[in-house]
């Protein structure tokens, strides 16, 4: 958008009655969706650069808040707060690595921000949960059935338009899977991520993904090398090279951070393979 406001008081907040109306407004006005706005507000404050319109999303819209089990797995409304995720019994069941004192959720922002921030916001901002969503092959539901991609879209950033509105994240039934997720931050709590690394083993195949300073991405080449036997294990030089090249290609230009990611993945792979 060409127009920007220098003061937040000048922003017009549009309050649609439904998710469909929100999408219509966004297409008409080019507005910015607002949920918890814990990521959006800091970036606007930083540049004194406010969009002319906010389109307010409402957690009361059907399906936008809460967790629900179905044959597809676990559906999580996009406006579910991060705080809810850290305490929800279904999360403890499906993804215990997120909960508990040293679970990923406690490393994600501070407690006050988690109470405002939402799952959808974290995914849109490329936050810590994107690596996990990638590695789990989670899918997102978009609002609007006129969208030919419908709700069967596998998560992919380049496919998203700014007017696309996520209503929910659907994760497969991962209760029997092994899941490891690691955040490399600058300090113990409330740190921006240098790299968040997720590794998932469904009993058959490994899936790996990262997000952080180099941007989010699924490590398809590296995991294929492992799964299809091209590399016998993560400790071989071949696999190191494949991973390093793949990370660099994704945008991870700091070799030292690639080294850390590699070490974490080797560690996670060993952990998840244990007992097999």
């Amino acid at each position: 958008m060409a127009t920007v406001m220098t003061d937040r008081a000048e922003v017009r907040v549009l309050r649609p009655d439904s998710a469909r109306e929100a999408v219509t407004l966004a297409r008409q006005h080019g507005g910015t969706y607002v949920a918890g706005a814990t990521w959006l507000q800091p970036s606007c404050e930083r540049g004194r650069n406010w969009p002319p319109f906010f389109i307010a999303l409402d957690a009361r819209w059907p399906g936008f808040r809460g967790l629900q089990e179905s044959h597809q797995g676990l559906t999580i409304g996009a406006l579910t707060t991060l705080d809810t995720l850290s305490h929800h019994p279904l999360m403890k069941e499906y993804l215990p690595c997120l909960t508990g004192r040293n679970g990923l959720m406690n490393l994600l922002a501070g407690p006050g921000v988690r109470r405002l921030g939402t799952l959808g916001g974290n995914l849109m901002a490329g936050g810590d949960l994107t690596a996990l969503a990638f590695a789990l092959d989670a899918r997102i539901q978009l609002v609007g059935d006129d969208d030919p991609r419908g709700d069967r879209l596998v998560w992919r950033y380049p496919d998203l338009k700014s007017t696309d509105l996520i209503s929910a994240l659907v994760i497969p039934d991962c209760r029997r899977w092994r899941v490891a997720v690691e955040k490399l931050g600058h300090r113990e709590r409330f740190s921006p991520t240098r790299a968040t690394i997720a590794c998932v083993y469904d009993g058959n195949r490994f899936r790996m993904a990262v997000c952080g300073e180099g941007g989010p991405g699924r490590l398809e080449i590296s995991e294929a090398a492992l799964n299809d036997g091209a590399a016998s294990s993560t400790t071989t030089a071949d696999w190191y090279q494949a991973l390093d090249a793949e990370l660099e290609g994704l945008g991870w230009h700091d070799a030292r951070l690639r080294l850390a990611i590699r070490r974490v993945l080797v560690h996670q792979h060993e952990e998840l393979s244990d007992g097999d």
């Binding site: 931050g185 600058h186 113990e188 240098r194 850390a260 070490r263």
Partner: peptide
Amino acid sequence: DRLSGRVK
């Protein structure tokens, strides 16, 4: 941290 070099 042997994996990341971070110091506690």
